[in-house]
């Protein structure tokens, strides 16, 4: 589904990610984890078209995505839920969702709106409210809903759990699993490694812009030394 080959990217003269290879198979959740500054968000923003590709390629299906202008990538099936949500804060919930579906015909927008509001009924209750006035959890739901309005094949999620109450994080991850069961491919960037590992099928650990480890989430869950070695994560001792 998503195939990244020897991707180097960054800002101006600064290269943040070096020769990254990444394969995300269709219908899977792939977690990109790593310490602060490892290049996780930069990778996501590069796929979305907001960060300059210096070398390498990004393929989605059989199409080379890195040659496609940013505004066209959503039409190729890529939608981004950015870090910090970045909602259109002066716009209402409905307007935000309609912007999400901007690239689609009108009839698809109505259908997708209904689907998103079924998935997140709280958004329906606040449909006329300015998005800047929503709670953090509701804003995250709206950010996901806005991306879903675009009917993405590949959903890019950056720091889903950041700043959310545990209950809200749980709700968002339940929504992700529902999306995966519908066949959507998800590339997830998370600081909360435990949470990411529990939801993901595959994991890539980034360290200073390069791949430090890649494998299945199952293996990373079983062998705690993998994650500890690269991120310094300490797990709670097991109790019987």
């Amino acid at each position: 589904m998503l195939k990244i080959n020897k991707l180097s990217c960054g800002y101006g003269s600064l290269t943040v990610v070096h020769e990254l290879d990444l394969n995300v198979s269709e219908g899977s959740i792939h977690a990109l984890v790593g310490a602060n500054g490892a290049g996780k968000s930069t990778t996501l923003m590069t796929i979305a078209g907001h960060v300059q590709v210096k070398s390498g390629s990004i393929m989605i299906g059989s199409e080379q995505l890195d040659q496609v202008p940013t505004k066209e990538r959503v039409r190729r099936g890529v939608a981004l839920v950015p870090e910090g949500r970045r909602l259109f804060s002066d716009l209402t919930v409905r307007d935000n969702l309609e912007v999400g579906g901007y690239s689609l015909p009108k009839e698809n927008i109505s259908r997708n709106l209904e689907r998103v509001l079924t998935m997140f009924p709280r958004l329906g209750e606040r449909i006329k409210q300015e998005s800047g006035l929503l709670s953090g959890g509701e804003q995250q739901m709206l950010a996901i809903g806005r991306a879903l309005m675009a009917e993405p094949k590949l959903l890019l999620l950056d720091e889903l759990s950041l700043g959310l109450m545990p209950r809200m994080v749980e709700d968002c991850y339940i929504a992700l699993q529902q999306l995966q069961s519908e066949g959507m491919t998800i590339l997830l960037v998370e600081q909360n490694t435990q949470q990411a590992l529990s939801a993901a099928d595959d994991v890539t650990v980034l360290e200073s812009g390069t791949v430090a480890w890649q494998g299945t989430a199952e293996k990373a869950r079983q062998d705690s030394s993998i994650i500890e070695a690269y991120i310094g994560l300490r797990r709670e001792p097991k109790t019987d």
Binding site: H50, V74, F88, D95
Partner: peptide, 19 residues
């Protein structure tokens, strides 16, 4: 709608296909 979204956050507006 495209105009209001672009005023608020041009980069995100572009992400959703707004020119």
């Amino acid at each position: 709608l495209a105009w209001r979204a672009t005023v608020t956050d041009p980069q995100m507006a572009e992400s959703f296909g707004i020119d």
